[in-house]
């Protein structure tokens, strides 16, 4: 049985259909990424999955419990890392974990027994008595993750777990999430960072306008939707070059601002030719999930 299954989900706010017929199944023990531009319906989908809001139509099953009818029982076995830090600022690290554990009906002794491992996991061993204000952004986020593990959940929801963190802090979070996956926890995470999804997720679902527009393992999506090589070109005389020669070398070309993105299966000839044109500079790289994402959801700004 999948830990989370969403079938034919619809949610409307006024005239806007934020979730418009969404199907999603998360496999046990996998890290599943939920990607999409702003307003694609990611957070609403999480809230529906947790039984915090009612769907207009469709079914949600969380750890075998129909939602939102059995939300309380399902959430007993789920951890949630919210997008905005809502740690208790009046409390120490230890008190945050204790107070949160009590919401799950755990006794003080049970929580105390789990505390060292949670602090260790969060890289906060020795910081149990620290005030929240004294923690860095990365520490707070790690504590929020540790807090979500206080009930030893089978499934953990993470809403943009690394937004706003510096690269060092981000890498530390990624390590932690890999450890969780290795312990057999199922993870469902939303993110804006394609690199994050590519590194962490076994499968990703790309949402746009409340619908699933692509789903699969990141590498497969890249193989399926974009050519394997990308050459980004910019410089003097770009337009003239494109009009005369680009077609010969590129399967697909896209002009974004001052840069021309060439997607191709065979980059050697293109690169050799560009090496001979002094006025043009280029970057040759393998295609990534971001290329897929931008191809499928477009380059227009979403606000």
């Amino acid at each position: 049985m999948p830990p989370l299954s969403l079938k034919g989900l619809h949610k409307r706010y006024g005239a806007a259909e934020v979730v418009a017929g969404l199907d999603l199944e998360v496999e046990p023990g996998t890290c599943h990424g939920l990607l999409g531009p702003n307003g694609a319906g990611k957070t609403t989908t999480l809230r529906l999955a947790l039984g915090l809001i009612d769907a207009d139509a469709g079914e949600v099953s969380l750890l075998g419990h129909p939602m939102p009818r059995e939300a309380s029982r399902a959430r007993q076995r789920v951890g949630v890392v919210p997008q905005a830090d809502n740690l208790d600022p009046d409390f120490t690290v230890r008190e945050n974990l204790q107070v949160y554990g009590r919401y799950f009906g755990l006794t003080t002794q049970q929580i105390e027994a789990r505390l060292p491992a949670l602090l260790e996991f969060a890289g906060l061993a020795g910081r149990a008595e620290s005030k929240i204000q004294a923690l860095s952004g990365g520490m707070k986020r790690r504590l929020a993750i540790a807090r979500a593990l206080v009930n030893d959940p089978e499934l953990v929801f993470l809403d943009e777990p690394t937004t706003g963190l510096d690269p060092q802090a981000r890498h530390l979070i990624w390590q932690g999430l890999r450890k969780l996956a290795a312990r057999g926890k199922t993870l469902l995470l939303t993110t804006h960072f394609m690199e994050e999804a590519e590194r962490l997720c076994d499968r990703v679902t790309i949402l746009d306008r409340g619908r699933v527009i692509a789903e699969g393992p990141p590498r497969e999506l890249i193989r399926l939707h974009v050519e394997p090589h990308v050459v980004e070109i910019h410089g003097e005389g770009l337009d003239a070059w494109r009009d005369s020669l680009a077609e010969r070398h590129c399967r697909r070309c896209e002009r974004v601002g001052e840069t021309l993105f060439c997607y191709t299966d065979a980059p050697q000839a293109l690169v050799a030719e560009l090496d001979g044109i002094a006025s043009l500079s280029y970057l040759h790289r393998p295609a990534n999930l971001e290329d897929v994402f931008l191809k499928l959801t477009g380059r227009d700004l979403r606000d």
């Binding site: 915090l52 959430r75 007993q76 919210p82 809502n86 208790d88 600022p89 799950f104």
Partner: peptide
């Protein structure tokens, strides 16, 4: 302000 209620609503409590 602190969103303490949101944090609690993610647990079994309603």
């Amino acid at each position: 302000v602190q969103k303490t209620w949101d944090a609690i609503l993610n647990t079994p409590l309603g």
